[in-house]
Design a protein around this nucleic acid. Structure first.
Lengths: 197, 197
DNA sequence: ACCTGAACACCGTTCAAGT
DNA sequence: ACCTGAACACCGTTCAAGT
């Protein structure tokens, strides 16, 4: 309504959406400031009104993808929920080829990333993992899931049969098994602990 | 001795060594075809007599680093040897900041990489892991070690206190614990199996 | 404040030409 | 066969200038 300024043609949200659209269509290599700007009908310099640099743009694209990944429901054991978390995250990342490479390359700032870490933390805390191990456990799981998806991204069509999915599942189960073992050790040492499920 | 051709000024080994020296001195970002060529007193085009492209050069640099990492001795349990493998690999990769990023980015071809995978395979086979699980287990361990080192590389000096090393150790132990659990399951189902160590 | 054309300082790679 | 200068087709980012 005020006449003193025309509405901006661009905004941060549309810049991030456009970058994600380019990634989905032509891969991470196609996400250049020039290409994103071109898609918006302008030049690369225009993006810098909304973003400090290309890394920040990629971080925002990553967080947008993470924000759209559902978190598992509370049904089932913590093991089942952790496995579902890993599978859902892997599947969602692979739907945007190249985004896992971004996740490995840029520090995981962003609200969606933090929310997912908090969810994992709550899950493992509820399972009985002691406070001093929570962060290390959350980091290990997060790292494995992101790295596994990233490795699958690199495989060409022929190599990425069902084998890759099964290897991902196997490693995820190894970590779940390791956590179970860790919990047993604490139960031994703290026999008064009440055990749920 | 033959006069019909002068000795080449360059060879593949010196190109790879120079690229690694640049990486060690100024980081992965400084490893450009121009910089490596300049260090050799020539232009970037000269490298292409020895290397198909930059990715191949980086693969060779990676394999050179991997070849210099010692493999643990046969002393101790398989768990102890696996932990030593992980710690030694992490330490050696972190001595060349940026090389873990290369390991995550390029497919792990190369003789040294294959030799290390074979060593892991032999270790887990000796531990009693069934044939059909070996590849998945080797891949999971390799992936975790490389990704863990890569993540640590990204941390700046202040963030990379002892916390990062402890988180790496924790995740590595989770995988070892998961493998132990996996082995117990197979012992249950194959009670005639003779168990060593 | 928002936007932009043009330029700067780089890249990886190719190729014709030299020896 | 080995080597190279020069060019090609790109990059991310900056900045003065416009509105």
């Amino acid at each position: 309504m005020p006449s003193r300024s025309s509405a901006p043609k661009l905004n941060l949200e549309v810049v991030v959406e456009t970058a994600l659209a380019v990634l989905d269509k032509d891969g991470l290599g196609a996400v250049t400031t020039r290409r994103v700007a071109e898609e918006l009908g302008t030049g690369p310099a225009s993006l810098y009104a909304y973003v400090r640099n290309k890394d920040e743009l990629l971080s925002l694209v990553l967080d947008k993808v993470l924000a759209d990944i559902p978190l598992p429901t509370a049904r089932g054991t913590w093991q089942q929920r952790l496995l579902r978390y890993g599978r859902q995250t892997r599947k969602a990342l692979l739907a945007h080829p190249g985004i896992a490479a971004v996740a490995m390359a840029v520090p995981s700032t962003g609200a969606a990333s933090a929310a997912r870490q908090d969810w994992l933390r709550g899950l493992l805390c509820g399972a009985g993992l002691p406070e001093e191990e929570l962060q290390a456990a959350v980091d290990s799981i997060s790292l494995y899931v992101l790295a596994g998806a990233h490795e699958e991204e690199l495989l060409t069509g022929t190599e990425r049969g069902s084998g890759a999915a099964q290897r991902f599942e196997y490693g995820l189960r190894l970590m779940v098994g390791g956590l179970e073992q860790q919990l047993e050790r604490h139960v031994e040492h703290l026999p008064q602990h009440s055990q749920g499920t």
